[in-house]
Design a protein around this nucleic acid. Structure first.
Lengths: 184, 184
DNA sequence: GTTGAGGTAGACTGATTTGTCTACTTGTAA
DNA sequence: TTACAAGTAGACAAATCAGTCTACCTCAAC
């Protein structure tokens, strides 16, 4: 991975996440990164390939951030607490690793690539699956409890993005999970 | 509202919802509807204005569908049950009024119009607010309970769109709300 | 120094983008 | 019949889209 390729991927991620995929042209990515067009097409076969690289970069960063946020939790309950504290911080754009909050990059991208057969959509699906597995490693609970946590997490992300009220949404999710604890 | 204007709005909604805003060009809407370009710009000042009309049409249909789905519920609990039954049916594309399920049109559109100042984004915000108020009218509960229901609804919509498992997500949401009932 | 490969620059192509223009048709009212 | 306005048609324009092309540069191996 050359420096230019990294720079292109980084710039693409920043612009795609900030303003969407179809709204960003190749030329804008090139102008901002200062790389030539031929160089981009030397490293990537198409805009979609560049997008896949950007998704991969974001995915690695997000999973890394998630692990860091949860790793000190010793009990499942503490992990839930830490998870939604971290999410709340992300929603308020206070997590340096994740940048300015603009919703979940993978949900946003799914909205633009609806075709379930497309590699881009499938990459978004895979991200959610790995996020679920990562959280599951810290929660030490059954599948149903894990599904509940993930359902509330997605709800919190979308609510924070569209309606605002990030802190309240996270606090509410924690409260729901607390009340639900030990239930069937 | 002339017939052509209605046809344009209808066609725009169909294409925008199916494939996203920036992925659909004006020309495709014109080709599919059989209307001339000048006619479009006679009725709408810009593509954004057409989009706003499409959002309005979808909003009216969605709220109407929501009222129909909930109107026979006599208790708050029954309303919750009915709500998630209806959502499940929507996710499975079995609600004729809402068409083939491709997530929430307003969440999807928000993903493409991040600028909080834009009229489009604000229209999406307003939709979520009215949906919340509409549900609140049937639930007869405090604000916190209503927020919980909405949080889980958003989670279910996104989960159904990206990860699949629509029925399970709705069933889980109902179960959570049942366990949570009467809690602080 | 020579050679060869990997990487880079930016003009160029053809398709497509949103939006404008002039000319035409249609319906209504005097 | 005449006059006028509302609505319509589709060619056209300027900008931008993704992607290609030739020419050049850099640097390591020998």
């Amino acid at each position: 991975m050359t420096a230019k390729k990294q720079l292109l991927t980084e710039t693409a991620l920043q612009l795609f996440y900030a303003r969407g995929i179809h709204a960003i042209g190749i030329n804008e990515i090139l102008a901002q990164s200062g790389v030539a067009k031929k160089t981009l097409y030397h490293h990537f076969a198409s805009k979609d390939e560049l997008l896949l690289a950007a998704l991969q970069l974001r995915h690695e960063r997000f999973i890394s951030w998630l692990n860091e946020s949860l790793q000190q939790a010793t009990t499942g309950d503490a992990a839930v607490e830490k998870l939604f504290m971290a999410l709340s911080s992300w929603f308020n754009s206070e997590e340096e690793k994740l940048g300015y909050f603009r919703g979940c990059f993978f949900i946003n991208t799914s909205a633009e690539f609806s075709d379930a057969e497309s590699a881009v959509f499938q990459r978004c699906q895979l991200h959610k699956q790995v996020v679920r597995e990562t959280i599951g490693r810290y929660l030490q609970c059954d599948e149903q409890r894990l599904n509940k946590v993930c359902l509330l997490m997605e709800g919190a992300i979308v609510t924070a993005q569209v309606s605002g009220g990030a802190d309240a949404a996270c606090a509410l999710a924690v409260k729901i999970l607390s009340n639900d604890k030990g239930q069937g």
